[in-house]
């Protein structure tokens, strides 16, 4: 099953590349600034949110904007992938009903497109950081690379699940959107984890898988510290279970997909 999954991806790797390429071009077609929007959007958003928080709650903007930025964009990658997954097969109906293309490439297609946008936003992050705090740059920041790989597998797992579930239960898409919105507020993204601790509800993030996955990308990106080993391990275990579980889930239903479109 596992072998079949990866063999299928390998066989259709050129199709996948071509589809991803099309999606990326389509996204910024006929826009003057084009791909620059991929950098400008997260940059602008972080500055707006950072300023609001600075004025309302009196947080230190210089510290808070990088924190917000480094957490918000990986989060948008996760939720974008899960949400994009719901339409992955539905949008590929023409291909799945006409050719024997391997269905598993379609969730990957959405995740890769979202991932490339994440990479652009990280580029924007480091540009911004250069102006805010050039002294904080260090080799430890490179630790966000393995973090991103773990995060990618996790997001792909979510997309695999949502793509298959949404075929049977079309209500899943709006439900998932609501659920992710809830998790967004329950996870320390727009506020520090320490704030939950002060209120005595640290369990909210300690038992939250999303927290660990964000942490292994966010902390190295900020450059000031390295996440502890147990955070790394938790994130890796959560990610691998989700990923391999989703492969099993998807491949078991592989031959039924075309009938449900």
């Amino acid at each position: 099953m596992l072998k079949e999954y990866f063999q299928g991806i390998w066989r259709d790797r050129f199709i996948l590349a071509s589809l991803v390429n099309t999606d990326l071009q389509k996204k910024y077609r006929r826009s003057k600034l084009g791909v620059a929007w991929a950098i400008l959007t997260p940059l602008g958003l972080s500055i707006i949110m950072g300023s609001v928080y600075g004025i309302l709650f009196g947080v230190d903007v210089k510290e808070f904007i990088p924190f917000l930025f480094a957490g918000l964009n990986p989060w948008q990658f996760i939720s974008g992938s899960a949400d994009g997954g719901t339409g992955a097969f539905l949008g590929a109906e023409g291909y799945l009903k006409q050719t024997t293309v391997n269905a598993q490439i379609f969730p990957i297609r959405t995740v890769i497109v979202n991932f490339i946008n994440l990479l652009y936003s990280i580029l924007a992050f480091f540009t911004l950081y250069l102006f805010l705090d050039p002294l904080v740059f260090s080799a430890e920041m490179l630790l966000c690379v393995p973090g991103l790989i773990v995060l990618f597998l996790f997001a792909l797992g979510l997309a695999n699940f949502s793509s298959v579930i949404n075929l049977d239960i079309r209500d899943f898409q709006p439900f998932q959107t609501l659920l992710l919105q809830g998790i967004f507020y329950a996870t320390p993204i727009v506020y520090q984890a320490s704030m939950l601790k002060e209120k005595g509800v640290e369990l909210l993030y300690q038992a939250n898988p999303f927290y660990y996955l964000l942490e292994i990308v966010r902390t190295p990106m900020q450059g000031s510290s390295v996440p502890p080993l147990e955070v790394w391990l938790s994130a890796a275990v959560i990610s691998l279970i989700t990923f391999f579980g989703s492969i099993y889930f998807l491949m078991k239903r592989r031959s039924k997909i075309v009938f449900k479109l």
């Binding site: 199709i15 023409g94 009903k97």
Partner: peptide, 30 residues
């Protein structure tokens, strides 16, 4: 194979790109 019409195309892409993609989907190499 060739089944229904006007499905299995990338609507925003050019005819050339669609020839390439369709060829790949039918099992040809790049």
């Amino acid at each position: 194979s060739m089944f229904e019409l006007a499905t299995g195309f990338e609507m925003e892409s050019s005819g050339w790109d669609n020839i390439y993609l369709r060829g790949l989907m039918l099992g040809d190499s790049p």
